[in-house]
Computed example of a mutant assay.
Amino acid sequence: MKKKWILPMFASFMLVSGIGVSAAEAATVNELTSTAKQYIGAPYKYGGTNIQTGIDCSGYTRYIFSKFGISLKRSSREQFTQGTPVSKSDLKPGDLVFFNTSGSGVSHVGIYLGSNQFISATTSGGVEIDNINDRYYWGSRYVGARRVAEFTNEQAEQVKEAAIDFSVYASRGEAAIRLAAALGLDTNDTATPFVDVKPDSKYAGATKALNELQIFTGDASGKFNPGSPITRAQLAKVLVKAYGLQMKGEPKTFTDVPANHWAYEYVQILASNGITTGKSDGSFGVDDYATLEHLDIFIERIKNNLQ
């Protein structure tokens, strides 16, 4: 029997909105669980907050939730009063689960992963996955759960992206590879900063090199999303930053890119340099997925202009 002695550790949640449940709209269940599992085996240290040198249960939950823009305090006892209570039968991935390991109330917190599993930093094994119904330890010490954030179900997004023909459209990963090659970047360093691009990934060297130049950055959860399509607006920004393009002449009007659009400047710079003329209907196709053909054409035009 593996017995775990957990010292009292505290982590309290402060919602972005102050009360109620925070809507983590940009974060999916899969992003949460994959991020949490990435640190399995991280060493335990009472009072620790460093995932590399040692972290306690509250430091761990705080670290994981911070990657999704959610701020947690340092006391699990106070955290147990935040959000909304959730019955054991209604647990969802992302809920915080609490245990009495000290004999004096809430003293341990973890993140529910689904299928009765939760992940937390323990004194016996560091960050690891356990069962909330474990009859030898956790089951008898379970206190309750709180929902402090809503994580979206990514099923619809996955179905949508599964229907995309990546032999026609450019994924973010493929765009990174082709752009790094066009720029002649050294892609030998595969120590990528992105949680979803491992060193052995074919995208690692390119994403690392482009990130160091601040051409490509990740999302709020630290992911690069190499398998997601890149829009024409996103591509405009990447190309402008990659080649240091500047505005030339008068702005061009595109029906779908008003002056207050976040990509307005990037699209205008591309157009002013003759890299794009837009679509026949007067739009740029700002939200359209960029094709591999257009990616290559844009890069070739820029290179010709710079010669």
Rank of each mutant, 00 (worst) to 15 (best):
F98V: 09
N131K: 06
Y266N: 15
C57V: 01
L306R: 01
A11Q: 12
T53N: 09
I132R: 03
S283V: 11
T122D: 14
F166H: 02
P93L: 14
G282W: 15
K37T: 15
Y266Q: 15
Y112L: 10
Q117N: 11
A163M: 05
A11D: 06
G48D: 02
N100I: 06
M1N: 13
D95Q: 11
F284R: 05
T28S: 15
A263H: 11
A182R: 02
G139A: 03
E250P: 01
Q79N: 10
A209K: 02
G205R: 04
G94L: 05
I19E: 09
T187K: 02
K241W: 04
I64E: 07
T101C: 08
W5H: 13
G110Q: 03
I269C: 08
K241A: 08
V21Q: 01
I55P: 02
S66P: 07
G249M: 00
L7V: 08
P93H: 08
I269W: 02
W138F: 09
N100M: 03
F166G: 03
A170H: 02
D288Q: 13
S201V: 10
Y63C: 03
Y142V: 05
D56E: 12
S124E: 12
F216Y: 10
H294D: 14
S201R: 06
Q158Y: 05
K73L: 11
F284P: 00
S120A: 11
K73H: 07
I70A: 11
G114E: 08
D281C: 11
I164T: 03
V168H: 03
L183T: 06
G110E: 12
I51R: 12
L183Y: 00
F284W: 11
G105P: 00
